[in-house]
């Protein structure tokens, strides 16, 4: 479960402020986050993942009070609990598809790369129908396939929380629905909580709940 309580966050030297008096996301819940640009959707995901630290209030995720963690502990929390999917895929162009999926294991010493991980990567790729491209280069596959690679990368460490920041933003309508369905399907199968930011109202119908982030957004005087 993720629980926000009297949470306040403000970027330094910015008029932007996020105030969340009370918000809860249940375990394995599938939540869509909507709201206009610049209202704090990505900020919300970064707070949940421990990348940003709230100025005030409490943020409890997976029974951990993130405010009480130091940098290293927050990183460990992110490695073990969080899976990230980005709008721009953020794949590494000099790695092939397989290596991109395995990237978290290359860069985190806490994650041990072994045969079972390799096998799980192959299974995930097969379930996303990109297993034929595993040895291929990133620039040789389509946008929709790239996003599926990114989803495999996010799912491989078996996260409890899957954060998707507008993952369908760069895709055509058919791929949008496909990616949403894949995320929902895998989150359901692994019993993971899914929080997906989207601008597309047509994708909302399959989620358990929709949170409009605009209600938490404030513009404050810089002073």
């Amino acid at each position: 479960m993720i629980r926000f309580q009297q949470l306040q966050f403000r970027y330094p030297h910015s008029a932007f402020q996020l105030n969340i008096p009370q918000l809860e996301v249940r375990e394995a819940e599938k939540v869509a986050v909507v709201g206009p640009s610049g209202c704090g959707k990505t900020t919300l995901l970064n707070l949940i993942s421990g990348i940003l630290v709230p100025d005030q209030g409490t943020l409890i995720s997976c029974d951990v009070d993130l405010n009480q963690l130091n940098d290293s502990q927050r990183r460990n929390y992110r490695i073990s609990k969080i899976g990230f999917v980005f709008q721009e895929f953020e794949l590494i162009d000099y790695l092939n598809v397989r290596e991109n999926i395995l990237l978290p294991y290359y860069i985190n010493q806490a994650l041990k790369l072994d045969q079972s991980v390799e096998a799980r990567a192959r299974d995930l790729a097969a379930s996303m129908q990109i297993d034929q491209y595993l040895a291929g280069r990133i620039d040789q596959i389509s946008q929709g396939e790239r996003q599926r690679v990114a989803i495999c990368r996010a799912l491989l460490p078996q996260p409890q929380i899957l954060l998707a920041d507008e993952p369908t933003g760069n895709l055509d309508p058919a791929n949008k629905r496909l990616i949403r369905d894949l995320l929902l399907e895998h989150a359901t199968r692994t019993n993971a909580t899914l929080i997906m930011v989207t601008h597309d109202d047509r994708l909302l119908d399959q989620f358990d709940r929709t949170i409009d982030i605009e209600q938490f957004h404030e513009v404050v005087s810089k002073s």
């Binding site: 990348i51 290293s72 460990n76 721009e88 953020e90 860069i107 010493q109 806490a110």
Partner: peptide
């Protein structure tokens, strides 16, 4: 910069990024 940011979001430590 974006590559480093992505790695950081995926849990990579800043020291590992510099090591890289």
């Amino acid at each position: 910069q974006r590559e480093r940011q992505t790695m950081f979001q995926l849990g990579c430590s800043r020291s590992t990024i510099w090591k890289l």
